[in-house]
Amino acid sequence: MSSQPTSLHAWLTSETPASRRQARWAAFYKGWLSLKSNHMAMAGLAIILALVLIAAFAPWIAPHDPFVQDLGNRLQPLGTEGHLLGTDSLGRDILSRLIHGARITLYIVALVALIAPVAGLLVGTISGYAGGVTDMVLMRITDIFLAFPRLVLALAFVAALGAGIENAVLAISLTAWPPYARMARAETLTIRSSDYISAIRLQGAGPLRIIIKHIWPLCISSLIVRVTLDMAGIILAAAGLGFLGLGAQPPSPEWGAMISEGRRFILDYWWVATMPGLAIFAVSLAFNLLGDGLRDVLDPKDSTS
């Protein structure tokens, strides 16, 4: 029983891996060990994991239905019997709404995290590797998107496409990809002239294979770090759109929309707006901490030698 973990540890930290699988797992394990020694990053990871679990089991965890109104029981303070975090202006349980709101937050974050960095990576690496006219055209398009203030461009998109959570995601993604493209292009420029790219070209590899198999793996780690650091901004942008009434629509328990609703009573019933604010703050902070820790683990500049 006790020998199992130590032999697994030895297998994972072996200097002479005997198979492809072992070499790959060993690389993961090394990264995990170094992430584990960073307590702040682990705290961030714990909060995010908790968020994921809460979102997954929201209907079973939430003490009340997030949509059921009880006008006789409105604006109850914290710690009221049956309503730990009080109730909002329509008598809905704030805790239950926060728990269900975690789903929406994760949904937004996951979608943006899937769309924006992938688009940025594609544009950036193609632009950096191809050079010439392709580079010029793609980078000028990127410049145009970069020139707009983020929230204003998102507002314009949502106004054009109509309010709603999908459109909010789309709008945020459209404004979020240019920095990734810039970063991926800069990295590609340094990578493409290196000897290992020349070496694979001399084996007859085409540009597509070089970009996907040789350039992407080197760009992705810094991209992941950047994404986790941007997560906080994405959550805030989504909340901002919700606050302005252009994101999730009532009665959806989106955190930004909840703040917006609570704003009217903020002087007399401060918790209605404060609780979702604290939730946004906690999750943003968690992503920042995790991103910082991941940077130490993944940044190729530190871990190559």
Binding site: R20, A23, S194, D195, Y196, S198, Q203, K213, L218
Partner: peptide, 28 residues
Amino acid sequence: QMVFQDPYASLHPRQSVDQVLTETLQLH
């Protein structure tokens, strides 16, 4: 075929020896 000057720069930092040789052999 060519052997490059600097062996610290001519191997992909994220690919194991096995991956480098496998891909080369597949390409040929």
